[in-house]
Design a protein around this nucleic acid. Structure first.
Lengths: 128, 128
DNA sequence: CGGCATCCTAGCCGATACTG
DNA sequence: CAGTATCGGCTAGGATGCCG
């Protein structure tokens, strides 16, 4: 496949090839609450409503979904304490902690550059 | 607001606070083609259709949109060569290059961990 | 308290056709 | 070649209500 290759296109792949194939997983990370939740849990275990308050702005529905997906992917572990009232604790797994590190890094980048982005955006909108 | 604070919740913020506020920008990065395009351009300038082929699987509509957004945010610069037929070259700005580096890093992480994720996912699905 | 089920909306994203 | 315009599907995400 793709043997029709114009050399000018073919000769310049590299990192692109890798990143293209993982686009699916990337959009997963881009989920509205995935990184906020993971990073929040990076500070330590939390119960459901604690987590909800700590993240801020998330509906309980979305928090439930996000947590379930994260558990499914092995990022967090869920511990039920059979007390009254019931308590459920969420903790990051080792895999989750490594994701949290990535999230913080990405967050730092956005934080460092968002003013620049905002500027460009306004300059662009002014013209258009 | 929020002066009702239970101390157990309040005392454990840190990195979370930062990341919460940038959730919006994060979902922007999570756009289906944002990172693939940026990373692809990381290897050098490309014209529209070259870029389309290099990224692979992107419709020209989505490429146009993604490029416009990226230009708006100051990640790429657009150069029109008034030739026949017209040629338009896209290049990363300095800001864009720094984003590309982030993208590659994130991509590497996914690449390194996706097998682990897949495993957990199957184990989880088996039980449920 | 924690969490599912249901309904609903906004926007992302894609395929197609048309313009300069 | 490099777009714009239009249509429509899909689904992420939010509001609400009920259950254990």
């Amino acid at each position: 496949m793709e043997m029709t290759a114009h050399k000018e296109d073919e000769s310049r792949r590299g990192t692109a090839d890798e990143c293209r194939s993982i686009a699916g997983h990337l959009s997963w990370i881009g989920g509205r609450w995935t990184l906020p939740v993971v990073v929040t849990l990076g500070d330590g275990a939390l119960r459901f409503n604690q987590l909800k308050r700590a993240v801020g702005g998330v509906s309980q529905q979305m928090l439930t979904r996000t947590l379930k997906d994260l558990e499914r992917d092995g990022m967090i572990s869920r511990t039920v304490h059979p007390t009254v009232p019931p308590q459920v604790e969420y903790t990051l797994t080792e895999l989750g902690r490594s994701l949290a590190r990535q999230g913080i890094q990405l967050g730092s980048w956005v934080l460092a550059n968002r003013s620049a982005i905002e500027e460009h955006r306004q300059g662009f909108d002014a013209i258009r």
